[in-house]
Design a protein around this nucleic acid. Structure first.
Lengths: 149, 149
DNA sequence: GTAGAACCTCAAGTAAACTTGAGATCAATT
DNA sequence: AATTGATCTCAAGTTTACTTGAGGTTCTAC
């Protein structure tokens, strides 16, 4: 149900162009499309064409991946974006706020791990039952019930 | 060429025991053995037996995994450990020092990502060619040539 | 001496995120 | 018209880190 006007078509990008400009392989773009992360329309000759907007979208996907968000979740988040128009700053803000939290969490976990690692360096305390490194669930369980990835 | 004395055998652990006490599945222990991460000897009835030391070793593997080190690299690092005796604090220190660096690096990367994300929240700058989030290689390339995982 | 739990091996399956390959079509150029 | 490069589809392969299953053996306990 996406509306496309003449101007958009005019500026349309081919897969090759998108690949080069976004830095991902053509096969990856095919793959993302199959997974529902991005979309395109076709020319009379069945070739993909993308709105210029695709470049930002792919950039967003790459950022999310760097954070460590799995593609399925990215698909999910992206599907919450408005259909048919380019996401606005506000849309992007919602997305990034959610991911920002996950990033914070991830950083905190790694930082805790680092502290524990420092405590343990050279002390051999991994052999001790009470070692915090050895029993990470002491800390994880503080997050409450439910799955802790 | 590992020497095992009567006392060790005395305190030997079965796979089931190791699994329960280390928190990994029996199948995972089989798997780790095949990959060369851990080892065992066999009873007359062909069942695995482990030195008590296995528990620390598995703990070390799990810590390394939390840092994000792939198993192959862990195997590599562990193979540098002395054969036939339990690793000492010094051995463990060498290992953790190396991994500590990777952890630091990972944390720094994520922290940079977070800062950039903050800069970008709500500003829509992902659409701008110069956006640092969009062009992470500006920063990655500072790490020098070679593969950047 | 027999049931049931714990083990064994080996092959195959799983999930994520892609890549590769084969065979065919499209588009731009000479 | 013919060549060359870009695309297309669809299936199958790749890597990491395991898990699952089938079919068979060993241990422990009653």
């Amino acid at each position: 149900m996406t509306l496309i006007n003449a101007a958009d078509i005019d500026k349309a990008l081919t897969v090759g162009e998108v690949a080069e400009r976004s830095g991902v392989a053509v096969s990856t773009l095919h793959f993302y499309e199959k997974k529902g992360l991005i979309k395109s329309w076709r020319t009379a000759g069945n070739q993909r064409r993308y709105q210029r907007d695709i470049l930002r979208r792919v950039a967003v996907i790459k950022v999310a991946q760097r954070i460590g968000i799995p593609l399925a979740e990215i698909t999910d988040a992206l599907s919450a974006l408005p259909d048919g128009r380019s996401p606005t700053a506000r849309d992007w803000k919602r997305l990034s706020a959610r991911w920002r939290e996950q990033l914070d969490e991830r950083i905190e976990q790694l930082t805790m791990l680092r502290n524990q690692l420092s405590d343990c360096i050279g002390c051999g305390c991994l052999s001790i039952k009470a070692c915090r490194l050895r029993n990470p669930y002491d800390t994880l369980s503080e997050e409450g019930p439910g799955p802790h990835f």
